[in-house]
Design a protein around this nucleic acid. Structure first.
Lengths: 351, 351
DNA sequence: GTGTCGTCTGACATCGATGTCACGAAAACG
DNA sequence: CGTTTTCGTGACATCGATGTCAGACGACAC
């Protein structure tokens, strides 16, 4: 007869010990265990020791959620992060920066990808609200965030990143999209270019519109009339960017420079230039730096963002609010930086 | 006298409504609200409607944690993900894939970066355990995961990704590091190379050791005696990789090809080659594809991993376990793919 | 008209913890 | 030495929800 009643390997699920179990084993009241676990004062040294030993023996882990139910401040020590996609390099670095700040305070971070879907934004907020997060860091997708006011009124702070909120008055941390775009265009103009193409991201996205505005305004202040044929909007992946770039360069009167407004679009443009063998003839500045941008030839000039700083500042704002800061909403602009590497300094042939 | 008692903008925190509030407003018992919210049967249509209206009017959101306390299955509908860094492109894509599977089941994902710190692994597990996650997906950092057995025994499943677990018998989803490395070396040998340098990641990391083993074994089966001078280990960033590569190429008898075992290291090697003007003379294959690898010249050949598949499979395993699957632990290997682009096909000059 | 049944509903105990409070013992005070 | 304080401790109510159970009611069969 083989051992059917094997004690050590059979049980698929052992019950998770509670404070009561620890209390019983230590021979004390449940409240005393609570005191020891939470480091409250007025527990005899010997008692503390017994409780600790019992807790360790049972591998006891307190249930934060049960505790929060009764606890005065009711904090879940959890925040929620909503971004376009956790796989997007910019968002991923923002995430890492936020996590770093959160870790210092023993906060855990829920991350959710919205993929530019407005419905996903509401769903994600609801899901996190049911989990009672203490605060949100959000890349807004919807046109209007006023539906979030209820959460704010209940004391759950929210900070917007990358894009400005609409309909609510909350802290935001944004990149200087408009000024950055102007910098890019000014740089190209300074190298003699007047026919500068613009490869824009989805117009649905606020920052894309800001970059377009910067492009147009800088052209205007340089006294250059924009050529509608050189302005292409609503690009969001590199394949379409490649196709569009090839098309632009095949025009009878092609651009001599390109300002691409987003990471993937920049990669697509470079691919087109390489295919046509024009990478040393057409100037290119991209918004948002590309990994390995200094290994491509010519090396890629870019308007670099600072995701690390965006994330850190956003996290600091949420935690300040969680800590009770009730000062007026702040709008923090993180400047971009023109990274000069080569592709943006190709001079205009005619000039 | 200005309005000091402004009702609409003053209150910093409004109380969050509970089921009791909804019940009161709807004129029903609290249990009936619970029934409606959870879609339980046997509630009159009119009552359901009144409750719904009351809940909507108060913007009621159920408290999942309070519910789980009493609920029979006790699921928190939350899983934890531990990776090297959420900013690492490989991990970020794994994360996205896991999130996709989780979203289908209304699960939220906690992501934590360990940065190869063994202590961080234990801290993260403890933090998530206190939050009662239903499962873990972990990139192990510690040498021994047997301390996790308690969690497993309590019915919280764990799946390892990228690296094999040690000391516990759980599902794992790993890349074919060893075979991938052999593929890389075989490819270089096929192009006539015999002096192939190896740029290895931190030896502390299991996968790094596997890649090194693959490198050595493939050399051996090609009848090539490894030159210790060409094997450099413990590289983890691109600056040191650049320096080491420059050093190797300055040797009296330099390598004719390089196999770099990790993303950042590959970038560093390319930089060195470009600085020396040798990028068309020295063959290079990198483990793990680099973004924009097809825009660099020569285009970068690589052993590509499939993070999307790794993430999806890992998530499927965790959820299967959460659903009660008690079949033996499975080890799933996701194959790598050799991406031929140019840098790896540079022939050996002598041959 | 009466008994049985299914539907609809709410009172109450409970989940695992913390906040309040009261009590006994020891310490500090006069 | 009596009295006030402080310390150390546990009983109990409570947080916001769900599980159990019993009761009210109307429909239906006899």
């Amino acid at each position: 007869m083989t051992s059917m009643s094997d004690d050590t390997s059979m049980p698929p699920t052992a019950r998770r010990p509670t404070m009561r179990d620890v209390a019983q084993l230590a021979g004390v009241g449940i409240k005393t265990v609570s005191r020891v676990v939470n480091g409250e004062p007025n527990v005899a040294a010997g008692t503390t020791e017994r409780v600790r030993r019992a807790a360790a023996e049972l591998h006891y882990e307190p249930d934060m959620h049960a505790g929060n139910l009764r606890r005065a401040d009711g904090r879940s020590h959890t925040i929620g992060l909503l971004v376009s996609s956790v796989a997007n390099p910019f968002a991923a670095h923002v995430h890492r920066a936020i996590e770093r700040v959160a870790a210092e305070r023993d906060y855990a971070v829920f991350a959710t990808s919205l993929e530019e879907d407005p419905a996903a934004e509401r769903r994600a907020i609801a899901a996190l609200s049911r989990r009672r997060v203490d605060g949100y860091v959000v890349t807004p997708v919807q046109d209007d965030q006023s539906y979030l006011r209820v959460h704010l009124d209940r004391g759950t702070p929210l900070v917007c990143i990358d894009r400005e909120p609409a309909g609510i008055d909350v802290d935001s941390v944004v990149t200087s999209n408009y000024d950055g775009a102007r910098d890019a265009v000014r740089h190209l103009v300074a190298h003699g270019h007047r026919r500068i193409a613009f490869l824009g991201d989805l117009e649905r996205i606020l920052t894309a519109r800001h970059r377009r505005a910067g492009y147009l305004d800088e052209l205007a202040s340089a006294g250059i009339a924009p050529d509608p044929a050189l302005v292409v909007l609503d690009l969001h992946d590199d394949a379409s960017a490649t196709a569009v770039t090839r098309h632009l360069l095949a025009l009878p009167n092609p651009p001599t420079a390109i300002f691409s407004s987003q990471n993937l679009v920049t990669l697509g443009a470079i691919r087109a230039l390489q295919q046509l063998g024009l990478e040393y003839d057409i100037a290119l500045v991209g918004f948002d730096d590309v990994e390995a941008g200094d290994l491509v030839k010519p090396r890629v000039s870019a308007i670099a963002q600072d995701p690390d700083r965006v994330g850190r500042l956003a996290a600091e704002r949420v935690f300040a609010r969680i800590d009770g800061d009730v000062s007026p909403a702040r709008r923090i602009v993180v400047p971009t930086q023109l990274v000069v590497r080569g592709s943006g300094e190709i001079p205009c042939p005619g000039a």
